[in-house]
Simulated assay, not measured.
Amino acid sequence: MIITAVLAANLAIAQTPPASVDFASLLAILPKTQQNPPTIQRQAIDIAFAPTGDLNLKVTLENEGTVIDTYTNSIMTRVATFARQTFRGGVFSPLGDNSGKRSLIVTLNDKPAGRLDFTMTKKPTGDPYNPQNIWTVTGPWQTHGYLTYLINTSNQQRVNFVFWISSLELGTDKTYQVDLVMRRGTTVLAKSPRSLYVNFVDLVRKAEPLHLPNGDPLMATDLGKMTGPYVLEIKLGSKIIRTYRGEIAGGKFVPHKNSSLSHTDPLTFLPERFISDGGNSVADQLRAWVTTF
């Protein structure tokens, strides 16, 4: 009995990931390219499996490997195994005026806890009377997304898909309309109920419901009839802009491999659970991450 208890305790320890930033809170830090130079705004950062005791969170911003800004947490709140670090609002960090790689690096008690790498590319408009730059930003916003639904799938809860997109990814600074399609082979499992407008040159977050081919909303209870792999596409007309891949089993979306509690890299961990919008409880929803790779 003692040996069994020890093994169980060791297994529980092994299945607790190291403290890591909820990657969704990093993706919420969106570059603002309409400012000169481009900036990012300091946002709340959530930590999954936060250690007990004092928490010293530090954010370092790098431009091509050179540190251009650092800041530390000002307010910390705890919710179950999570901690939310908030910062004084309305503060922006310049990203520099050069093309190249930017990195936002988060450490917690001097240990790596999160990292957001992205590339900024500058293209002058060529107007001698009104010289301006058009910036494109590429990074995990184009490779990551997630579906949300209630943990208790017996409830009638709509399935929503969250992703990030900008008009420059689709062409220029015009307004575009894109569609979401979830399919298996040639069979459409679900789709967006209407075309979605994309009319911002900066990246924006979209949270959209999916509907069944008959027009009814896709509910968590419908997943039990959809077992198997699927792809989720963002389409501009007949052109596929992105393809995410996932699987459904046991009436639920199969968690991403980086969501496993045995995942040991805090920089790539994708937690299934998250703090509610109000910030005072753990949300009663699951977040099923999907990626394009």
Rank of each mutant, 00 (worst) to 15 (best):
A9M: 07
V21T: 01
F253T: 07
N258Q: 14
L286Q: 03
Q285Y: 07
F82V: 05
R88F: 08
V181C: 05
R102Q: 02
E64F: 13
N36G: 06
V159W: 02
F82Y: 09
P209N: 07
P124M: 02
R183Y: 11
M226S: 12
N155V: 06
Q85N: 10
D277A: 15
R205S: 14
N73H: 01
G96T: 05
I234R: 01
G246Y: 15
A12C: 04
D284W: 09
D216A: 10
D277I: 09
A207R: 12
Q157K: 03
D54A: 01
G250P: 03
E247V: 09
I240S: 11
T72H: 03
L27N: 09
P217L: 07
W164Y: 15
M226R: 14
L196W: 00
F82E: 02
Y176M: 09
I275G: 02
S103M: 14
T148S: 00
K239H: 07
G126A: 09
V91C: 00
F87R: 13
R245I: 06
N152T: 09
F274G: 00
Q41M: 08
Y129I: 10
T187H: 12
T143W: 02
Q177F: 15
G215K: 00
Q156A: 03
L236R: 13
I241C: 11
S238W: 01
G279P: 13
N133S: 12
K32F: 06
L26C: 05
H211N: 12
S20D: 00
T66Y: 13
P140N: 12
L147I: 05
G96V: 05
Y149L: 06
P17L: 02
A207N: 15
T77H: 13
G279Q: 11
S195M: 09
V137F: 09
G251L: 05
N56R: 01
M76P: 04
E208I: 12
G65R: 01
M182Q: 00
A48S: 03
Q34A: 09
D216E: 10
P38V: 06
V162I: 10
D284T: 08
F87D: 04
F49P: 01
S25K: 00
V67F: 11
I47T: 09
S281N: 07
T172C: 04
T86M: 10
T33Q: 07
L286E: 03
L30I: 15
T148A: 00
Y244R: 08
K101Y: 04
N10H: 14
P266K: 01
V91A: 03
R245Y: 13
P229S: 05
T77W: 08
G145K: 03
T81A: 01
T39D: 12
L104F: 02
